[in-house]
Design a protein around this nucleic acid. Structure first.
Lengths: 147, 147
DNA sequence: CGCTAATCGTTCGACATCGAACCTTGACCG
DNA sequence: CGGTCAAGGTTCGATGTCGAACGATTAGCG
């Protein structure tokens, strides 16, 4: 009888858990002092998707809870890397903006991380990643529907 | 110019992060009261790989730090789900054993989770998981070597 | 209009997680 | 031997993470 470890689906999820952990710790190690992984994730999102998002939007995009994001935003705010603005149109909402220092910190972090990404692209082709995408997307979609 | 989000490698890592999170929360929700996700992970490992392992072995297998595992083992111990035994051969080490209650709790958790796994196996074939494995394994190996 | 429900963000308490420092014990080697 | 170093576990402090409850605001609808 096959051990559970031998089942392909279990192995896939084990690999995914492992990869997620490796990436998180690799990025964490490269971050400039005073910037944490979740803080970097927020800066990353704001830089790329454009700032002015609301906390719930950010939390959803990063799979964080509202309360978790409140915590991270408070720390980013304390370091003057982001600013929160009360939304005039809907006074329940706030909008999050990067400060110049926030953009600077993000660029600094990215320039620390970029060499690793370059090395990764030497080890694997864009095609390999593309070929892996459809299954991963299908799996993610299925799992989030069965939520 | 392509947004960073469009790069296939970035998308793959995003999907992986997302899937890991979905699986963790899905399992967490099915766990019997009083059993946490990390506790379940430890019971799962002990049940499948056999007990008698040492804490460092377990921590390494689950990508936990020694101190994190100490915490989890203390809680499992307090609930009498595992027992720690001082290793006679090497008195620095301890060995972790499942108690009957621990095996019982694990079986209970698994029977809560099994229906989800069955549904997953209706949605995807074993072949699809097998086909995804080589790339994921290569990626995990590459990342852990560049550690 | 006015009631009810939903949304947004915060607070709080419990627990997870990490890294660094520490103690004990064993291994290595001169 | 004996000294030094490595390995196994624990503790501690800081932070992350979650869920539940809350106050404020808005939307929906009779």
């Amino acid at each position: 009888m096959p051990e559970a470890e031998d089942l392909p689906d279990v192995q896939v999820f084990d690999e995914i858990r492992y990869i997620e952990h490796l990436v998180r710790t690799a990025i964490t190690r490269k971050l400039p002092v005073g910037l944490n992984y979740p803080q970097f994730e927020v800066l990353n999102l704001l830089s790329r998707r454009g700032d002015g998002s609301t906390p719930v939007e950010i939390a959803h995009a990063l799979q964080m809870t509202k309360s978790g994001l409140t915590n991270t935003l408070q720390r980013l705010c304390a370091r003057k890397l982001v600013e929160l603005e009360d939304c005039a149109a809907d006074r329940r909402k706030k909008r999050v903006w990067l400060t110049p220092a926030g953009r600077q910190a993000y660029l600094q972090a990215m320039s620390n991380i970029r060499p690793q990404i370059e090395k990764l692209r030497d080890g694997f082709t864009a095609r390999e990643f593309q070929d892996a995408l459809p299954f991963l997307r299908a799996l993610r979609t299925w799992l989030s529907e069965k939520d």
